[in-house]
């Protein structure tokens, strides 16, 4: 049977070529940028808009390994630490509360009547629009960023958990009752352990909105953090600093995403497919 290397639904390239395919889009973008940057710098020596890879590398080295006298820190690491703290806090609070709201809404009709319409309604608010209110309410410190991230993810996670608990087969819940589970036991000993893997998934899917909220809130009002630094560097047209920061954030996001995937697999080996 004919198996083409690239085109058609029967394509089956050899292993080595697969890696070439995978790398291709990255290589194309990097080469395109490189050419753009060279042309630009040839016409504008000393221009800041499209820095070369060397310039970015030097600037990154600077940000990461030279002591900043004004803030008394190494900027990249201090920013990363601050941002990850805010990120983790907001996400963890959102996941915990979202899980509780979702599970309780799904199991208790009383809770469902009271909370479901409200949660559905407020989950439609673009939370960034609330930032001015948040800034007024909790100030411009860490709490503002944590709150924005929290609000961004909590309703999404609550709704996702609500759906997945509702989809549990009723038979298992009935069975648990016949085996002597109390009503609260049903929630915390039967249902919760069964939907924990799904919580990891829900958190993973809300990572995007969490990063969004973090960078946006740091860009608008902050004194340190990855988002703050990017917006600060923008004022000086410091593209050689901004681009490595963006790549660094992407790398962090990627790592966190896969950390969650592997944590879920490790913690819940019973969860197949």
């Amino acid at each position: 049977m004919e198996k083409p290397y690239l085109f058609g639904i029967h394509a089956e390239p050899p292993e080595a070529l697969v890696w070439v395919y995978r790398a291709l889009p990255f290589v194309i973008v990097l080469m395109a940028y490189s050419m753009l940057s060279m042309t630009y710098l040839a016409e504008n020596p000393g221009g800041k808009l499209f820095p070369s890879f060397t310039m970015m590398g030097m600037r990154l080295w600077d940000l990461a390994f030279s002591f900043d006298a004004r803030t008394q820190t190494y900027l990249l690491w201090a920013d990363t630490y601050t941002s990850l703290f805010r990120f983790g806090m907001g996400l963890a609070l959102g996941a915990a509360l979202g899980l509780l709201i979702g599970v309780n809404m799904a199991l208790f009709p009383g809770m469902r009547y009271m909370l479901l319409p409200f949660v559905t309604a407020v989950s439609n608010i673009p939370t960034l629009a609330l930032l001015p209110l948040i800034l007024l309410a909790v100030g411009i410190g860490d709490m503002a960023k944590v709150t924005l991230i929290f609000l961004g993810v909590v309703f999404y996670i609550a709704r996702d958990m609500y759906t997945s608990v509702s989809e549990l087969p009723e038979e298992l819940l009935v069975k648990a009752r016949t085996l002597g589970a109390s009503q609260l036991g049903l929630v915390y000993r039967v249902v919760l352990p069964m939907v924990m893997p799904r919580l990891f998934e829900a958190v993973r899917l809300s990572l995007g909105i969490a990063w969004w909220s973090l960078i946006a809130s740091e860009g608008i009002a902050a004194t340190e953090g990855l988002g703050y630094r990017i917006f600060l560097m923008r004022r000086y047209l410091d593209m050689a600093g901004i681009i490595p920061y963006v790549v660094w954030i992407t790398l962090l996001a990627f790592t966190i995403n896969y950390a969650l995937v592997y944590a879920q697999r490790y913690l819940y080996p019973w969860k197949q497919e």
């Binding site: 087969p169 038979e171 648990a176 039967v190 352990p193 069964m194 819940y268 019973w270």
Partner: peptide, 8 residues
Amino acid sequence: KYTLFPNL
């Protein structure tokens, strides 16, 4: 179906 709890 659903004879046992899958997580235990």
